[in-house]
Structure formats: structure tokens, C-alpha cells
Design a protein around this nucleic acid. Structure first.
Lengths: 260, 260
DNA sequence: GCAATAGTGTCTTTTAGACATTATCCT
DNA sequence: AGGATAATGTCTAAAAGACACTATTGC
């Protein structure tokens, strides 16, 4: 047996000073830009502004900075449960699909000591965010675009966490059909394109000719047809466009047989 | 509010008669076929043979049939914890990565009543299976190839569960680099090809010319180079072959930009 | 007709597929 | 040299990319 193990003395080892849970809440917001134009879609992240003073009147750590919603995990909670609770307390949002994606435990990431954070992310349709509010030790809640967020002086190592959350969002959007959560049941190709472009920026997505050629044969969407008649809409343009819906095909693509 | 909800009477509704956890344990076994030839690899699944009689001496349900290891979940357990425990009890295997993949709750799937099963799967390197043994209410433990397993008269709806587990295994192998768990740290392209072929059967994998051309540029593997000299081995052939290793790149491929 | 979005035609470039060929090297 | 596996060359077929073009329709 290793000598080091025999000489182990628990008091020589430091235990974490805190165990927290943070949540990166992403949403795609639509801004109307004209009568026929489809709304412009932007990926935004929700941040809270940390108060300058705690409830007890002490000056708050990283007070005044923008941060991910989150907080300390209670002893009887899991990190996931804490994420759900904190999000509800700080922003009033409930009922989201929340996913754990990483642990941030580098010593020095929090000036208060050795604080471990479990990072989660959620992708939320815009309408779930309407009744957001500031509460608790968050003084303000606001949505920021990705451009904006990386200009801010963020609390702790939240910049890094957001960067990595963004990577997971992209992955989720690419690998799964989550995009459907941001679209009406029946949608038009340009709407799908808009959602995908908020997160991905592959060239073929941007070029209409390529996207419109390829998209119709994606195996997980299908044309909406009623009594043999393809259903169309002109909700976004004078020219009627074919409606599509997601079917229940679950696609996956081999990493061994792809372009990189 | 819906009238049906107002008239709800709990006694009108049946509660499940049992809540179980089953595990499909897959492994890739290698059989030596010659001095230089790389061993032939086959995907196998571990099944247990149900005893004819219970410990109490009653005749066992589906006794004598081959079945997935598993059993009833204890009240204080999660389905996952039960899967881990059952696998250890019935086969002596511990320390595996086990994943939940489905719930089987169709009435009639178990003659004893309404029994809900949480299905899990695990992909295990062959060396973890060496000390497997039969225990408890399993009289025998054996590995079957996919061809064999679907010939058997399996207990309950385990045939269906295995079919779906197989789908998930393929997905896992395709989407992640789990393949590395079946290879030495440093491996040769034909070894990688062998592992992939146990699960996938895409044509380009089978054609050496295509596989050997494409594989070297997969972004998640790299040539083993020492002091600028590419390292080679002749462990499988008289001709030396380049050694590769997995790097820590985490690949993913968009479902929107793939061939189907 | 104009403007704006939807969708196609067609050419070029790139990649995949098939199979023959060469390269290496242990016995 | 023989035999076996590793790897490349080369031709053909298919798919992706680029961009011009046509189609539809409300105003």
C-alpha cells in the first residue's frame, strides 16, 4: 500500500467552503422588423445583477456585477434541485428543462474561498420568460445578447462558464431537435433557418439556395399536407410558403463519417 | 376544470404491481484467429437463465428462460441504484457505466401483473467480465451474440428491450468516442475498424481503402509520434502499421448537415 | 409593375465509392 | 521469394457549393 495513504490525516486537507449551483438560461427572442419580414431572432442569456449589499447590510461579494442566477446548495438538496429552486427564487421562472453540464472547482474562482459550482443550462422558449422578475439577492434581471454579455465585467468565472454553456447549447441544437421548441407546430423553412442561425453559423445555413434545397429532405421534418394538398402560409411573405412540422424521427449522425 | 378530474376516485385506478430495473450488458469479445491476424471481435450481450423454482420452492415466472439481469426496485432505491445492485448480485459485476434508456410499462408484459421496468444498458470492456458468476435467482450467466440472442425464447418482453438497447448502443458508438474503451491506449486503424464493425455496418467501414483513407484525419484520433518519428507496430501483421491514440477532442456532428 | 420572399436550374468544385496497385517486412 | 496486412492511386459517381434565375403574390 502507498505510504501516503497510511499517513493520511484528514485535518491536513481542506474541505470546500461552499457548494453552489449556477444556471445559464438561454432564450431566443424575436424582434418584429416589418409587416411581412419574419422577426429577427437573437440568442440571449439571462443574467442577474448582484446587489451591492447583502440583506444583513454587509457589502456583497462581486456586488454590482452581472452574474448567472444561482446560489448555495442546501445540505439536503442535489445540485439539480438547487438549480431549479434558485432559478425560481431569483427570476420567478419554473418548469424548465435544466441540464447539468459542468463543475467549476478551481481554487481562487471565488474570493470567499474554495467554492465549487455545478453549472447548468436551459434553453427556454421566449414566452416562458415573460413573467421574470428580480427577487432575493438579485437586484435586476436582464437578457443580454452574446455580443453584449462578453463585454460585461461578469462576476466570478462566469464568463468562462457562459462560454462553455454556449458550446453545449450549440451541441444540443446541432444534435437534437430542440429547435422545435422555438417554432410553432407548423412552421416555414425560413423560420427554422432563423432559429438555427441564432446558434450555429455554418455557411450552408446562411445561403438560402442551399438551405432551401437541403432542408425539405431532412428526415425529421415533413410537409404539412391536408387531403393531399400541401398546406402553405403567407404569414411572413407575399409569396406563400410550404408549412412543415417535426415528425417523431430521432436522428443521429456518426462522428466517424462526417466532415470536419 | 375538467369534470373527469373532479370525479377522480383513486380506487378506480389500478396501481402498478411491481417496479423493476433491467440491465442490458454489452461487451465486445475478441477471439484469436491466428498468429498475426487481429482477433475477431463480436458484440455480445449478457443474459441470465431464470431458475425453474424460487428459493421458496414455488415455480418461478418465466423459469428456465434467458432474461436480462434485473429485479425489483426496493422502496428506498432509485431505478439506477437498483440496476447497479442487481447487476452486482446476479453477475458479480461492479463499477460499470450504466445508462437508463427506457421505460417498459405496457400492461401484460409480465404475467404477474402490471410490472413496470426501467431499462438500462452498459457497454463493458471484456476484461471487466472475467469474474462473472451466477448467483441469487439466476442459475446461469452467459454471453450471446446478437444472432444467437434473437433465436432464444426470451423471458417477458426482453426481446424488445434488447432490440431497443441495441439501437442505443449503436447511437452511443456513433455519437461518442466510447470505442476507446475497447481499444488499447495506442491502437492501429484495423483495430478501431474491428470495434466499430461489431456495432455499425456502414459500407465505408468495411471497405479497407475507404476506411484507411478517411480514418487518419478523424479529428479525435492522432498519430503516435515520438521525437518526430511516427510510432508503428507489427503486433497484428508482418507489415508495420501506424499507431494512433484518442485525443481529448469532443466531436459532434449536426443532424441538419448530414446524409441520411 | 414593383418589391419581397420562396424556390429552381445549372455549372463548378469537392467528396465518396470502387477497385487496382504499390509498400512493407516477417518468415 | 512468398504471403499477409497496410496504405495509396486513380477513375467514376454523387453530393455540396455558388450564384443566377424563375415564381408567386400583395400592394
Amino acid at each position: 500500500m502507498n505510504d501516503n495513504l497510511l499517513n493520511y490525516d484528514v485535518s491536513n486537507y481542506r474541505t470546500p467552503d461552499g457548494y453552489t449551483s449556477d444556471i445559464a438560461v438561454f432564450t431566443i427572442i424575436s424582434t418584429e422588423v416589418g409587416q411581412y419580414k419574419p422577426p429577427e431572432k437573437t440568442l440571449k442569456i439571462m443574467l442577474i445583477k448582484r446587489t451591492e449589499k447583502t440583506k444583513e447590510g454587509h457589502s456583497n461579494v462581486e456586488g454590482g456585477k452581472w452574474a448567472l442566477p444561482g446560489g448555495f446548495i442546501k445540505p439536503e438538496e442535489t445540485a439539480y434541485e438547487a438549480a431549479v429552486r434558485e432559478l425560481s427564487e431569483e427570476t420567478g421562472i419554473t418548469g424548465l428543462r435544466i441540464k447539468h453540464f459542468g463543475v467549476y472547482d478551481q481554487f481562487g474562482r471565488d474570493k470567499r474561498g474554495w467554492i465549487i459550482s455545478n453549472a447548468h443550462y436551459a434553453i427556454v422558449p421566449e414566452n416562458k420568460l415573460v413573467k421574470r422578475r428580480a427577487a432575493d439577492d438579485a437586484s435586476e434581471v436582464e437578457l443580454f445578447s452574446m455580443d453584449e454579455v462578453f463585454q460585461l465585467d461578469l462576476a466570478f468565472d462566469h464568463k468562462q462558464i457562459i462560454e462553455e454553456a454556449l458550446w453545449f447549447i450549440k451541441k444540443d441544437m446541432s444534435l437534437t431537435t430542440v429547435a422545435k421548441n422555438f417554432l410553432p407546430k407548423q412552421f416555414v423553412l425560413s423560420e427554422l433557418q432563423g432559429v438555427l442561425l441564432t446558434v450555429m453559423d455554418e455557411p450552408w445555413l446562411k445561403l438560402d439556395a442551399q438551405f432551401f434545397r437541403k432542408a425539405p429532405s431532412l428526415p425529421f421534418i415533413e410537409k404539412v399536407v391536408k387531403d393531399g394538398v400541401p398546406q402553405k402560409t403567407n404569414r411572413w411573405s407575399k409569396n406563400k410558403a410550404q408549412l412543415y412540422r417535426f415528425n417523431d424521427f430521432e436522428p443521429y449522425v456518426s462522428i466517424y463519417n462526417a466532415k470536419y
